[in-house]
Design a binder for these strands. Structure first.
Lengths: 192, 192
DNA sequence: GTTCGATCACGACATCCGTAGTGATTGGAG
DNA sequence: CTCCAATCACTACGGATGTCGTGATCGAAC
């Protein structure tokens, strides 16, 4: 009864899980809430995700998919000349993807806290974060820019804090997000 | 039946609430969990916090107390000469307080996400964050250092992202926290 | 020592949850 | 068309939860 097939419905339910986790929090993440949110008969999600843990696993996978770089934007930028401007454009795209898919970003922060108590989640998120860091380090050097892993890590701390602020409780509402990114790139990666 | 008196027991239960929220998450934050964690008979916390909402209110208040600046450290620093070094020392104290009282810091991040769905929590945290920002802006200018609200806001984004990383899923385990603070101060506030 | 309100321990109850079933339905292979 | 396994809708149930009520106990004022 793994209900591995019918990937369409499974994805719909996984998206509903992301939505519910983001909107109702970990406390509201129940099988029945998934069913209601997805508009399917109650009991359906139990057929796809037998336990609550498997719901969380599905969210983990789904968020990974939804927050992956947009190949269209990626391709569009690939043709341009490498340099600070292009690197900044990549970073803006990352932040834009996180702030526009608010549910996925919120759910990711929920999972970060969940990682505190679930080793399985911690492993997955650690791997995801390390990969993202390695990618950006490689991108930065490929662009011929100064700064190694340490500097990119600082940059990631800053960007994550900024996204958390924007998505939850903004200290300064109405800031220009692209401008913030530009300043972080300028100050953290090109100030020496 | 507000059980306003006996502040000792109320504080014990509030601390238990912070502990449970940090360790078990929003899902585990129940009256019975509070009672067990505090070692009091089951049903006790219902006498102090009639509804679950009032538990959250109590956590909000308690975190505000626990994360307030240490007057001892504050007094010790007040005697020194103003300048970048002293400002950095203040910032290290703030980060140290957040990373050493891990439960309070974790609970604060939980509440940040809870603020998404509870207007009451959002107001409280917004006020808290704005006050912290204003304080640091005032401190910075009092130290005769360059940088206004914008720069301090960037700094707060970065610090919060760093603390979240350290407390949940560190990308780079074993980093020197004070060194990170120093670099953020140097790069974000003194690079021009 | 008696009294009385504050404080507390404990139980009751409707509701919801996770999980595991049990048949109905479906759609393609033969 | 027939059949059969995959897919699905729905139910059942032990357990946990939020909330409210009801006495017991305590401690200070008189």
């Amino acid at each position: 009864m793994d209900m591995m097939r019918n990937p369409g419905r499974r994805t719909i339910l996984a998206d509903a899980a992301v939505h519910v986790l983001a909107q109702q929090g970990s406390r509201g993440l129940t099988h029945r809430a998934l069913d209601d949110d997805a508009g399917v008969p109650r009991g359906t999600s139990s057929n796809f995700f037998a336990t609550r843990d498997s719901i969380i696993d599905a969210i983990l996978v789904r968020i990974g998919q939804r927050l992956a770089p947009d190949p269209v934007v990626h391709a569009g930028l690939a043709g341009q000349a490498p340099g600070k401007k292009l690197f900044t454009a990549y970073m803006k795209d990352i932040v834009h993807r996180l702030t526009s898919d608010r549910d996925a970003a919120l759910a990711l922060f929920e999972l970060r806290l969940e990682a505190t108590r679930r080793p399985h989640v911690e492993e997955a998120i650690t791997a995801w974060l390390r990969a993202g860091l390695a990618d950006d380090v490689a991108l930065n050097t490929r662009m011929g820019l100064p700064g190694g892993e340490q500097e990119i890590a600082l940059f990631h701390y800053a960007i994550n804090g900024f996204i958390l602020d924007q998505i939850t409780v903004p200290v300064k509402p109405g800031v220009n997000r692209d401008e913030i990114i530009e300043r972080f790139v300028q100050l953290l990666l090109h100030s020496e």
